[in-house]
Design a protein around this nucleic acid. Structure first.
Lengths: 151, 151
DNA sequence: CTGCAACCTCAAGCTAACTTGAGGTCAAGC
DNA sequence: GCTTGACCTCAAGTTAGCTTGAGGTTGCAG
């Protein structure tokens, strides 16, 4: 059984440097369960090299508009125990492509509705199709008037 | 000169009911300068009927992913003094359509890049085109690792 | 002219995604 | 073997977009 040697793991600063993410952010991600670290005798975090890719994935997924919670779901599909390989990443990337597709579709529909609205210049709550509640914008982040739009 | 009669203005509760927005949210919008109210002798807010449309616009623009600050900019283009007419709203709607177009284009580009990435399964920070910093996702809301991605 | 719903102003709380700071420990080089 | 930079924890601050609550006033209906 191959023991984990010193060279297999990296300290948090290195992970930060290799990914361009702040050290504090990495601790934050660990806290949220997005990445996992082992500890040295002196309680310092040590990450696997493969975590560089894992963090990269987080960054990319964020750019695609996913929330950290959603990203965690995706990462959870990675195999336990072994370092994820190319095929694992490809699979996960595919499911992200689907997510983007959805966003594009939603935006396209919204644009069509807006076009109708522009036609009459009404912006009427009663008539305007933009108010179809079921067809929520996936627009990550912006919450909107909570009690009202979310019910 | 036509005096403003009692029937021309509405209290905050009515505006809330007509738009489906919470009273607290309307106060919040006023605070942020998105809408303006006159006050009665007893310090209660009175809104113009046309503010119903103004609030509707805010809701729609939010669905399109605009932040309140951006919405304020849009609203600032409305004429001072007179109640905005259909043509005013059409103009503003057109500029929103452009905003949506941009978002769709950006997403489409991103999807193309992801496709390249899926090809190799690399997710490498060095190579992956998804890391082109200038091409930020407009993804309203999600901040991302601040110091890093925003510089 | 009274009752009570609707209104008022703060202040504080909430979520996301982090950062900053204080106060203290670890580990690697000389 | 000691210095110093990297690391640790925990608490509090930040922005957006609101909500909730406390404590107090207004205004319309009867």
């Amino acid at each position: 059984m191959p023991a984990i040697t010193k060279d297999d793991v990296i300290p948090i600063g290195t992970l930060a440097a290799r990914t361009g993410v702040a050290v504090s952010a990495i601790r934050f991600y660990e806290d949220k369960g997005l990445i996992h670290a082992v500890r040295t005798g002196g309680n310092q975090r040590r990450f696997l090299r493969s975590d560089i890719r894992r963090v990269s994935f987080i960054l990319i997924a964020q750019r695609l508009g996913l929330a950290l919670a959603e990203i965690e779901e995706q990462l959870a599909t990675l195999p336990e125990g072994r370092t994820p390989n190319v095929r694992d990443w490809q699979k996960i990337s595919h499911s992200m492509r689907a997510a983007i597709d959805d966003k594009i579709k939603l935006l396209t529909r919204t644009r069509a509705k807006l076009d109708e609205c522009i036609g009459c210049g009404c912006l009427s709550l009663q008539k305007c199709q933009l108010y179809n509640r079921d067809d929520k914008m996936g627009a990550a982040g912006a919450t909107g008037p909570r009690l009202v739009l979310d019910t």
